[in-house]
Nucleic acid binder design. Structure first.
Lengths: 153, 153
DNA sequence: TCCTTTTGGTTCGATATCGCACCATTTAGT
DNA sequence: ACTAAATGGTGCGATATCGAACCAAAAGGA
């Protein structure tokens, strides 16, 4: 007899976790967008941040995968960033189908300014989790994210 | 000289955490919606689940607050659920402006079926975090959520 | 009681998100 | 080389999301 579910309550905990994650996502999104200029939206900021943290010159598809959004969504996000002059789309020398996303000077400055203007907000609750707890949570979530990603086939 | 930021790297960790949370949210959303019938969307399921976990008879505004979404979004979500016959909107006997959201039998059944059909997916990675790790993460995130919520004034 | 403010909810318009279909290139198979 | 399949990206239409403005009921003063 196949053991399909040895610990059903575990599922409930995962549901709870996803629920909590959804709410925090909501809260952080709202907080961010309240600070960002007019129509600037969280995904746009996230992309800029990613390009700085990792490296610019990524392709749109790489970005879509990194954030686990459909590529059409990324196209839209990048179009917004380009219209604001925060990124620059160039042809990919290695593949004529593909493009590369590069930060402009304005893009880098924008990110620095945004971080600075966001700092006070983060400061309002940054004492909630200690450094160890934070890194612990991040590590666990990262582990979960990679497993979920892998399970996605 | 005022100490505005005693530990700047902490902010970076929070950014990282929010980033990770955003991606997992994305992944769970996509996974859920792949299983749910046609146009059914994650927030709708989340509301049903909440009504069962907590108690139905909540008002739309209570739900909006619970999920930290604007009330207009909740109106829309509830309209979708009502159109599918999964919830029922009744007048609030205590307040003529307000309404109450009640689950229908179809709504309860729907939730049970959805959970069942989702179980295999969760099973694909449910061994990633142990029960202790899970409850630990949930507890920490819950703590953070409440603090962020409070900081929202 | 009358008037002001607050609160619960919806309507409306603007934008974001995403699936589907499509095109151009690249890769793989023969 | 030639064709078939896979890959990177976009256009389009349908829906989701959300802020602003609005309405009706309730709460709070005077």
């Amino acid at each position: 007899m196949p053991e399909t579910n040895a610990a059903p309550e575990l599922n409930g905990l995962y549901f709870q976790l996803f629920n909590e994650i959804g709410i925090i996502n909501q809260l952080s999104r709202a907080a961010f967008e309240a600070r960002l200029p007019d129509g600037m939206v969280l995904p746009q900021f996230a992309v800029i941040n990613h390009l700085i943290r990792v490296e610019d010159g990524r392709t749109p598809l790489q970005l879509a995968r990194a954030f686990q959004v459909p590529k059409t969504s990324m196209t839209h996000t990048l179009a917004g960033l380009e219209k604001r002059g925060l990124v620059e789309m160039r042809a990919n020398p290695d593949d004529a189908r593909s493009k590369q996303v590069w930060l402009t000077e304005a893009g880098r400055k924008f990110r620095d300014d945004a971080i600075a203007s966001l700092a006070p907000d983060v400061g309002a609750f940054s004492d909630t989790l200690g450094r160890e707890e934070l890194t612990e949570v991040i590590a666990l979530l990262e582990r979960l994210r990679k497993r979920m990603d892998a399970a996605r086939d």
